[in-house]
Amino acid sequence: MSAGRAQAFWLRNLTAKIAAIPMILTSLVIFIGCSIWTVVYSFTSSRSLPVTDFVGFRQYERLFGAHRWSLAVENIAIYGVLTLVFALTVGFILAALLDQKIRFESIFRTIFLYPYAMSFIVTGVVWQWMFNPGLGIQHFVRQLGFENFTFDLISNRNTVIYAIAIAGIWQITGFAMVLMLAGLRAVDDQIWKASRVDGIPAWKTYVMIIIPMMRGVFVTSLVIIAAGIVKLYDLVVAMTNGGPGFASDVPAMYVYNWLFERANLGHAMAASTMMLLTVLIIMVPWFYMEYGRKNKN
């Protein structure tokens, strides 16, 4: 009797389990399985086809010895720091300005956010055109009479990553702004009233009370934007294709290059394992914090 009941119960939930198969397969086979596969094959000498010829850390040694890889890492670090700092601060400032009961708020918000609706390829192509030294912004300013003005970030090896960062920040700021605005709107109205009765100036209320209250929003925005930064690929392809030379290479492009163009799987897997490691370092503490906090409540 009880066995029969247990079976009926099992069967009754069976539809749900069958329906959840895509999710189960995706999480186990793709997210866990493929990641492990990649880590495992990073220790092999696989070239155009995966082989199980284990060579220890040799791929990693080569990776850390490669000038192009260290350039890619340096680039993503510069891009990442700039993007995070500017997207979060400018995003917050814009959100705070929009939160002052202004007219045309939705028009401003629409303008700040539309870049986020476009493809990185589109963004890259437009900014490439604006940075064009011969016909773009530099050309325009020189026409105004400033003959020696130079604004040629994109074709200079040392500055090309800043050109990409400007485009990337332009695209992502609206996203940060929307999250910040939602955070600001979630602040209890009575906190503002209390601070007015206390006679605290608005800017001081933001700095001393509101921003500390919004720590969670900042952390969430930071994690989401940071995870996007690690994936940076399309924008570079469209703007510079990694050039001049390899001056604007980034890890995602490096991996792609070694996977599909140079047919050196082992080396590409080592590089992507490093990317995975970076994400884990960012994510695990946050995930633990979020999940741990939820369990406590």
Binding site: A194, R196, V197, D198, G199
Partner: peptide, 18 residues
């Protein structure tokens, strides 16, 4: 409000959480 010589207590307490 600060110049009116008032003190105010709110329903949600509105304490500065940090």
């Amino acid at each position: 409000p600060k110049d009116r010589g008032i003190g105010m207590v709110f329903q949600s307490y509105a304490l500065y959480p940090q």
